[in-house]
Structures are given as structure tokens and as C-alpha cells.
């Protein structure tokens, strides 16, 4: 089972290491981790997606996070109403002769921009749900994905 954790942490050197080290030594598998400034100065917000969580382990993730002194708040928001997004940069092969077909695929989706283009490729920037990102990747695959960078999930509760 996948769990989505939202945490507020001190914005200080070494905090990311404290958090990731706890995940590693407790045997929790991080699928993605995104961190950036939060609404409060001096504090960062982390969205952590944890894979293969079984039974009682779910509580362990938040209580063990709470034990890290520099973690101010940690909540499992998997079952909360949330807005969840990720951004992907996709460098897909597109020559002048195939570019039109690629652009046709992009038109099927919202939240997409062409970030850069050359005679051999297009860099696409897309923000959406994981499902949307997966869908566009599946359609672009036959053209050849040269490079891919995904940010991992970021999430806010919406209640």
C-alpha cells in the first residue's frame, strides 16, 4: 500500500538527512520526496510518498517522523481530501517530420507546455496527477523518450 505523508520541518542544514536517514533505518521505502519552502519562514514542507506499507507500519511512519526533533508536524494524508500534483519534464524525440504527431498528442492534455524544441527533440513540461503523467508517457513512448525527470508528488489537503 502507498501512503502520502505531509510534513513541516525546520529549514536547516541536515534536516533532509535526518528525515531520509530515519526512513532508511526503519526500512520504509521512499517512492518520492519533494521539499520546498512552506508558508512559514524558516520552515519547509515535505511531501513523502512511501511504498509497500503494510498494516501497523502506517502509524509508525508518522510517529517515527514526530520523533525527529526538527520535524514540527507530520501527517498521513492518504485518506484525506487532497490536491496532489507532480511535474514532469519529458525530452521526446521529434524530428521536423514527426513533430506534428507529437504535438497532436500534447493537444489531448491540459497543463502542458512545450518548454524547448530542437530539430531532434521537444522538451515537454507537464503538471498533473500521476495518472495524467503516466498517460502522456505511454502515448509518447513510441516516439522515443530521450530523458525524463519527474518531481515526485506534492500535496496539500483540501479540507
Amino acid at each position: 500500500m502507498k501512503r502520502i505523508i505531509s510534513a513541516i520541518v525546520h529549514d536547516r542544514p541536515g534536516v533532509l538527512n535526518r528525515v531520509s536517514s530515519m526512513f532508511r533505518r526503519r526500512g520504509f521505502n521512499i517512492a518520492s520526496l519533494a521539499v520546498g519552502h512552506s508558508e512559514k519562514e524558516g520552515f519547509s514542507r515535505m511531501t513523502i510518498v512511501v511504498d509497500n506499507v503494510e498494516g501497523m507500519q502506517a502509524d509508525q511512519i508518522t510517529t517515527q517522523l514526530d520523533n525527529v526533533v526538527e520535524v514540527v508536524e507530520a501527517a498521513d494524508i492518504t485518506d484525506h481530501p487532497t490536491v496532489i500534483r507532480e511535474t514532469a519534464l519529458i525530452k521526446v524525440a521529434a524530428t521536423p517530420s514527426t513533430r506534428g504527431q507529437v504535438i497532436e498528442i500534447l493537444d489531448l492534455f491540459s497543463g502542458i507546455e512545450v518548454a524547448n524544441v530542437s530539430t531532434e527533440w521537444i522538451i515537454i513540461e507537464m503538471t498533473g496527477t500521476t495518472e495524467q503523467v503516466e498517460a502522456i508517457l505511454a502515448l509518447l513512448e513510441p516516439h522515443g523518450i530521450i530523458e525524463l525527470m519527474r518531481t515526485g508528488l506534492i500535496a496539500l489537503t483540501s479540507n
Binding site: 501497523m56 509508525q60 510517529t63 517515527q64 520523533n67
Partner: peptide, 11 residues
Amino acid sequence: IDPSNINQNVE
């Protein structure tokens, strides 16, 4: 006193 002990080994 340590919430992380709860359900760590025994529910």
C-alpha cells in the same frame, strides 16, 4: 510516553 512504541511490535 513514546507514541512510536504503540503498534510497533504488538497491536
